[in-house]
């Protein structure tokens, strides 16, 4: 937790400094008025830096250290999920909704612990077509289509 706090404080301070540099390039269209586009982000960046410094210092002073659970064995499954999800979304841009969804669901349900492969396949295909049917056909909510058909 300590490391996590310190790293997030540093990231926030960097964001704050970045915003301050960025807003200094904003044109002051209002002339003398305090209400230009830079006004609000500037205040926020300063507050962000101050709060992050407080977090940084109070974390250093605080001796207590707990596990965050970001790096234990269980979290590995989550990271695999995140990367599969990224691949799924990228594939969807090319292959449309149906095929990547079936593949993604088969992989995920297996990862989550269902054993029987035929059952996984049936559940995945069924779920995909139910979602497709409800959204695209019944409610006319658009889903990604195969890109070269457009």
């Amino acid at each position: 937790m300590r490391k996590g706090n310190l790293i997030s404080a540093i990231i926030f301070i960097i964001i704050g400094i970045y915003v301050l540099i960025e807003v200094s390039t904003f044109p002051n269209l209002g002339g003398e008025q305090v209400t230009g586009p830079e006004f609000f982000p500037k205040i926020l960046a300063i507050v962000l830096i101050v709060l992050s410094l407080i977090l940084f210092i109070s974390t250093i002073l605080d001796k207590e250290n707990r596990e965050t659970g970001l790096f234990n064995a269980l979290a590995t499954k989550t990271y695999i999920t995140m990367f599969s999800l990224l691949a799924y979304v990228l594939l969807m841009g090319i292959l449309g909704f149906i095929i990547p969804t079936i593949v993604f669901l088969i992989g995920m349900i297996r990862l989550c612990g269902m054993k029987s492969i035929p059952r996984i396949a049936i559940v995945s295909i069924l779920a995909t077509f139910v979602i497709y049917g409800v959204f695209q056909l019944l409610l006319a909510v658009p889903l990604p289509t195969i890109s070269f058909l457009n």
């Binding site: 999920t81 999800l85 799924y88 979304v89 969807m92 909704f97 969804t101 993604f104 669901l105 995920m108 349900i109 989550c112 612990g113 269902m114 559940v123 779920a127 995909t128 979602i131 959204f135 909510v141 658009p142 889903l143 990604p144």
Partner: peptide, 18 residues
């Protein structure tokens, strides 16, 4: 939940796309 969670993830994708 091993069936439900993957479906929820797909619904997140569908929802944000729509």
């Amino acid at each position: 939940s091993y069936v439900l969670t993957p479906i929820i993830i797909v619904l997140c994708v569908v929802g944000s796309f729509a």
